[in-house]
Design a protein around this nucleic acid. Structure first.
Lengths: 359, 359
DNA sequence: GTGAAAGCGCTAACAT
DNA sequence: ATGTTAGCGCTTTCAC
């Protein structure tokens, strides 16, 4: 058996390795090898491999071919396949920062899962904000004939699109560019803010404070608008003293604790979990307990923090996984009829123990 | 010139674009196109593109070719290149979880940076522990003819290697398998523990507690050994009551606060930042202040937490970035003369404000 | 100096 | 039902 060995003639000795079927160093078994072993033509092998439905191959032949494939541990060469079909199975993913935040990971994860399910593989490059890397990466994507490109940022904001992306099948993830017509997959900030407020309102809170971020962004404006809508829906008049700005960090949360205390709010929506964490600290230092004295809601759902605070923090999740997944969907099958080219992804409530019921 | 525009006939209006050299939708310009425009053969173009030194091309020809390349916005087809040279520029990266931890991100980032610098691109797949995905991923790596594979885990532990990886150029990152001869790139737990203890010792602390993790792992044994060594180096006798176990979470830290207080330790090494965070909480509830009453050192350097605690936490960093980067190095150029096939990566001290000096 | 030609491993008509 | 024949876009001898 393994007659193919001879057919290679007295050629190079470098692939005697093939001898034992243990797969070790099975130096590039090709279609031709399989064909020879099975005693058929390469096209036949190709046909059975791809299970083409039109071309009917005799069952016996199929078996023979399959046996050969297994014996030789044959794996098709994706590069050759891509070349001949003229179409790769790559999707490029450009992220501005995978390092400085746990978030990007989830976007990648979502994109990866979805792409995988459709038979695509992700070419990921992290630019860490470096425009040079960005340019090179796009070039590389081009050279690998990617099907499309996901351009993602770690927090939701406006970007100016690299020139070279304009000509490609690009979708923006967690960012947008109003000067382009590209599809943007972004979190639904408005309803996220509304959800946060409602979590408190539904438990009977009427005086709910809102700690906004100081950084200009869709999160800042969108969530505030959502909060207002939620109040309005309950017929609660807005009290400006209940709305305060803070840096979106633990420090920011600590800084506004006094204002929050003084406001007489029974519940407070924080811009993110980190702010909530700082707020917890500073509140406790004043002898104010969560949730018995005051209820708090976070935003983001950063597991490492939110789930392990004391008490565990009720929050609104930023749907990073879904952002990545929907991004891939949009690249593979561009949705039509979008408002403003946006695909809005919901921010779901995550109930834990930082909210108490008021009656 | 640009006669090709006509050859598209009256077709879709979407790529009349080719007309102006603005690159829009430049549908697959090939070597041949460039050759024709420049009035030379494809081989000539190939030669100038690759700046082959042996084949000397007339400077004038080079210029002509380069002009054509620029005009056409020509980019080589990496798939074709890889096919003909028989060697891809891919490195596969298998991670068990990018989702549940911020750490994997850093490994990816390091690997990505290093690979990029050497002209390689990463094929990343996140298995989230799913063996089926793992198998498929490895198959895929094979099909894309990757140069090598990085198998990485989110925390340092022993693994049993998937059968199919044994025949490949694989390096283990943040994990190891004692039954295989594969190179492992792992954090130097021993010296990490030693460093943590020394941070306290160097400030004059003599009674330093050690909160170990309950989960069996190189971190558990290695760091403890390092702590012991550090004590020994200072001629301090070990006090068993100073060594306690706890779950490696905030909850674990809170749980042992009382034991720590009772131990009379002036400083404590925590298994990780999260434990330190819980300890902070519980200590403060008892009116014990960090660092004036007690000094604490963390481990991991999880930025979101450590840098923003009150006071900011001094800690020992887990070198995830370097793990990924060195992993790529090992795949591309296997180091020789390793002890136990391990490449040990240092865990550096990160000084912040949770340690006070004793005199 | 430069071009012609032979593939790399595969798919897809078109024959048979 | 299966084999033959062209390429896909590129690199690389080997002639001229």
């Amino acid at each position: 058996m393994r007659a193919s060995a001879e057919s290679n003639g007295g050629g190079a000795d470098d692939d005697a390795a093939q001898v034992m079927g243990d797969g070790r160093h099975a130096r590039h078994v090709t279609l031709k090898d399989v064909a020879e072993l099975a005693g058929v033509s390469v096209s036949t092998v190709s046909l059975v491999m791809n299970e083409k439905k039109n071309a009917r191959i005799a069952v016996k032949t199929q078996e023979r071919v399959n046996r050969a494939i297994r014996e030789l541990h044959y794996r098709p060469n994706a590069l050759a396949q891509n070349l001949v079909t003229g179409t790769s199975k790559f999707i490029g993913l450009l992220t501005d920062s995978i390092a400085t935040t746990p978030f990007a990971g989830q976007i990648i994860h979502g994109a990866q899962d979805r792409a995988w399910k459709q038979g695509y593989v992700l070419l990921i490059v992290n630019t860490e904000g470096n425009e040079d890397i960005e340019r090179q990466a796009i070039r590389m994507f081009l050279e690998y004939k990617v099907h499309g490109i996901l351009y993602s940022t770690w927090y939701h904001h406006e970007i100016t699109l690299p020139q070279s992306l304009k000509d490609m099948n690009t979708v923006l993830v967690n960012c947008y560019s109003d000067t382009e017509n590209l599809i943007s997959v972004v979190p639904d900030e408005f309803n996220g803010g509304r959800t946060a407020a409602k979590m408190l309102l539904e438990q009977g809170h009427r005086r709910v404070a809102f700690i906004n971020t100081t950084v200009e962004s869709p999160a800042r404006t969108g969530r505030l608008a959502g909060y207002r809508r939620a109040l309005a829906e309950q017929g609660i008049a807005e009290d400006p003293s209940l709305i305060v700005d803070a840096e979106p960090t633990q420090e920011g949360g600590r800084a506004v604790a006094e204002v929050i205390r003084a406001s007489g709010a029974t519940g407070v929506c924080c811009h993110n979990d980190r702010v909530a964490m700082g707020l917890y600290d500073a509140l406790r230092n004043r002898g104010i307990m969560v949730p018995s004295d005051i209820s708090v809601v976070g935003f983001d759902d950063q597991e490492v923090i939110a789930a392990h605070m004391l008490p565990p923090l009720s929050t609104v999740a930023l749907p990073h996984y879904e952002l990545g997944a929907s991004g891939v969907d949009a690249v593979l099958a561009p949705p039509v009829h979008l408002d403003d080219h946006r695909v809005l992804i919901a921010c779901p409530a995550v109930h834990r123990e930082s909210i108490s019921a008021l009656d």
